[in-house]
Design a protein around this nucleic acid. Structure first.
Lengths: 346, 346
DNA sequence: CTGAAAGCGCTAACAC
DNA sequence: GTGTTAGCGCTTTCAG
């Protein structure tokens, strides 16, 4: 048995290996592999054959260091488990697929300190741009973003100060508009059901806009209930039951998202309640997933795919122009209430 | 106006900047920032202060190139929009959060050529390991994985040949067990509803196992229906209606996933059908999201979180040991049918 | 069309 | 405890 040896560092193939295998200089091999500059068809084919034969995969780390270019876009979002962010991702991918850029996602779980860490990690890879959810960030995060020297697009929300570009909608206004529609339909005894998370700023802003619009009409929220964790559908059901038991004379329930709204709807239908006659319901998001429910929930589409697309477009343009910011573009979408079948018509 | 100038290359802060700002050598600054080696508290603090003040973010590209170490784990999955992969991600993150490793996800949309491209891109960043869904890959993909010199864990499925390690379950067996339970409950006129995608190998294997077990009992699928795209809940509803209209004497419907199963269940309940007396239903996955339905769907939990956790553990161990593969570990989970309330008891 | 030389920003390894 | 030196694997630049 041989004496104790230090493990040889594992090695992967390099340009040099392809160069030697093909008898072409490293530089020309590099040109072929990147489709840059003119290379004769003969050498091109020789190189490609050698690379494929060896199973060579270029080392982007070295390439990025040398070229000072990294075609990654950092996408920082709070969660992947509710339906909203995967749709944003779809929009982003759709646009970036047409470019050299690639999205890389980081998930914060709605925690500022995690956001800070994720951001730091991603920035340390020197991406070509950042798409980040929300306008609320820790001071350190803001500083990093400002100092990053790359385009930054904050998405989802427009109620607040942006660092660079923003694409989203006013959740305060969304809450207000929903309240107005509910009042106009004649409902007056209104309950609110939402997430407990104080860090879901957008849900908070919708709630604020909602109560504000009610107040203007002299109406106050008659009851409220908050939840945390678990299956949103089940929670919506439970919360609705609890609330209607406690406050039986409610005639409308506003949910902070469609999933709990759907749970509430199922509960009401199971109980044989007259929806939307006796009691109306509304959610928020426009989750396509729920299209198969017996009755279409009143909601407001958060335009998630469109937000993703637009943010990606802004990044792609800035990257192309090689600017160090996104020029402070501001895109505010203005979603309408989709009446569905759980809000009575007047 | 100044003469036309070439844009100065944008520069971010480097170790050198921190070194100059703190009056400490680059090497020592590097040590402080990585918590490596002994550095006096005095210099440590000087350096940290300078770094924070400048808003310095280290350049991992350079670091990775120099150290030949990249603490990324490539995770390659078909989709983020059904509920299954986000849960796998949860399991992966849970375990990797305890380590230096970071997951980076790539999405293939069930397309082998996309998988190949995503894999190539990810391998070009020289990750510490790969977690990839399924056992079916293009030859080129298999070659790349084999040549990568890093641990590879294939997840979800165990019906086939693995490249290195595998963590999953036998979908063929899952289909078989479901069929056996259905037969045992006395159902005989059975319909199948699933995705059209020929590339969802796991759904295909469940179907194969299912029909195989039925055949053994002399039973044949009485009707079948496949869908593509759109809201799964809505599709489940539509397909169920179509099938029950076409073949009214069916007494059981097996769905290839819980979402369409839920759509079917909603349809049956809306129609006032006697579930599970007159007609039984079963899905696959154990989607927690659906817990709030009026009746709990019979299903089989695919152990998604556990699969993610186990795969991550294997990668973490291999990375720690600095081996160039995962040692061909094989973990096969064995989920049981969860009877729920849409399968009649005998 | 092809090649040679000079780094990119950091860290390993070793000296002091 | 701290500094010095030599690359990591590629691309940029410039010369043929």
């Amino acid at each position: 048995m041989p004496a104790k040896t230090t493990k040889p560092p594992r090695r992967t193939l390099t340009l040099r290996d392809v160069s030697e295998a093909s008898g072409v200089s490293e530089m020309t091999v590099s040109r072929v592999l990147r489709n840059r500059g003119d290379v004769s068809t003969a050498t091109r084919e020789k190189v490609q054959a050698a690379a494929k034969e060896l199973g060579y995969v270029p080392n982007k780390i070295a390439g990025a260091l040398a070229s000072q270019r990294v075609n990654l876009v950092a996408v920082i979002i709070p969660s992947l488990s509710n339906m909203v962010f995967p749709e944003v991702m779809t929009g982003i991918s759709e646009v970036l697929d047409e470019t050299q850029l690639q999205p890389v996602v980081g998930v914060t779980n709605y925690k500022p300190e995690r956001e800070e860490k994720v951001l730091y990690e991603m920035l340390s890879w020197r991406p070509s741009g950042v798409i980040i959810a929300g306008l609320e960030h820790s001071d350190a995060s803001k500083k990093m973003l400002a100092a990053s020297g790359i385009p930054v697009v904050e998405i989802m929300d427009t109620d607040g100060e942006a660092i660079d570009a923003v694409v989203g909608l006013s959740h305060r206004r969304a809450g207000r508009k929903t309240a107005e529609a509910i009042l106009k339909a004649g409902y007056r005894r209104i309950g609110f059901l939402g997430t407990k998370m104080p860090l879901d700023h957008r849900a908070r802003k919708r709630f604020e806009g909602f109560t504000e619009a009610l107040a203007k009409a002299g109406v106050e929220i008659a009851d409220r209930e908050f939840y945390e964790g678990g299956s949103a559908l089940a929670k919506g059901r439970e919360m609705t039951q609890a609330m209607l038991t406690r406050t039986p004379d409610l005639d409308f329930l506003y949910y902070s998202n469609d999933m709990i709204g759907a749970g509430g709807l199922l509960y009401c239908l199971d109980k044989g309640l007259d929806v939307p006659g006796k009691i109306g319901l509304a959610g928020f998001n426009g989750v396509e997933l729920l299209d198969g429910l017996s009755r279409k929930l009143t909601t407001m589409d958060a335009c998630r795919t469109e937000i993703g697309r637009e943010a990606a477009r802004i990044i792609a343009q800035s990257a192309e122009a090689n600017t160090d910011n996104a020029g402070g573009v501001r895109v505010e979408l203005n979603p309408k209430l989709e009446p569905g079948q759980t809000l009575r018509l007047r």
